[in-house]
């Protein structure tokens, strides 16, 4: 069906969101049309004509009950339909994966850190890229989101993914891209004069393309491009994983 101006979706849960989106398009669209048509009909039928007297009525209980109950039902159903997607995307623990990247936002960059060979963060062989992220397609990716200064927002339109990065917390998000390509990663939360233009690129590779890229760029040989930024990262280092449960940062 038509995409209603939505950008192409290339993530697994993006479909769920789009489906809801279209459902609401229909609900609200039909409601709007009903309301406007009725209104116009009334305006034409009942415009002031000499000699006609307005109908003298103070309301109609059955009617009022109907148009209270029907929207309530629609909305309740809509709520129930929204729950699964929400719990899949944000509430439940993300699907297990061994692919973890740490994204630390700062005015006005995305610092993307890979654990390196040992698979641990905070060790010498970490690699930090600036405004650039490489992931394999069809693989669940865990993003450990942090911020050094103000609130930023990790937004990937084609993934239908958005999550604020809050200083003093680490928030775990996940996505699974289904189509190799190069996707823009804008910052969606006002974070200062550089907010506009704070963006990175997510490169989604096929499995073996990714292996090639990793071999060339994530091996200990290649020197960390943005090592300076990793120092500045220290303050948030000791934050316990508050996951997405919004727990307070302990220190």
């Amino acid at each position: 069906m038509l995409d209603w101006w939505l950008p192409e979706n290339v993530s697994t849960y993006g479909r769920d969101i789009d489906r809801l989106f279209h459902l609401i398009y229909w609900i609200t669209g039909i409601t709007a049309i009903l309301v406007f048509v009725t209104m116009l009909v009334f305006l034409v039928m009942y415009k002031d004509r000499p000699g006609r007297r307005a109908r003298y009525t103070h309301g109609n209980t059955t009617l009022e009950i109907v148009w209270t109950v029907v929207p309530s039902l629609i909305l309740v159903i809509l709520t129930f339909l929204s729950v699964p997607a929400w719990s899949r995307i944000k509430m439940q623990a993300p699907p297990p994966s061994d692919f973890v990247v740490q994204v630390t936002a700062k005015q006005f960059n995305w610092q993307v850190t890979y654990p390196g060979a040992d698979g641990k963060f905070g060790t010498a062989d970490d690699k930090t890229l600036l405004d650039e992220m490489h992931v394999p397609a069809n693989k669940v990716v865990h993003v450990h989101l942090r911020s050094q200064d103000v609130i930023h927002s990790f937004f990937v339109p084609q993934f239908r993914m958005k999550q604020d990065a809050v200083p003093g917390r680490e928030i775990v998000q996940w996505f699974e891209a289904t189509k190799p390509g190069k996707y823009e990663l804008p910052c969606a939360e006002l974070c200062g004069f550089g907010h506009s233009g704070m963006k990175g690129w997510i490169h989604v590779h096929t499995a073996d393309d990714y292996r090639k890229w990793a071999a060339e760029n994530l091996t200990a040989a290649a020197d960390p491009p943005a090592a300076g930024d990793k120092k500045a990262e220290e303050p948030t280092r000791d934050t316990t994983v508050a996951a997405t449960t919004g727990g307070q940062a302990k220190r």
Partner: peptide, 12 residues
């Protein structure tokens, strides 16, 4: 809907 109901049968 009550606003619409008010228009219904009025002398607008």
């Amino acid at each position: 809907f009550n606003w619409l109901g008010t228009l219904w049968g009025g002398r607008i």
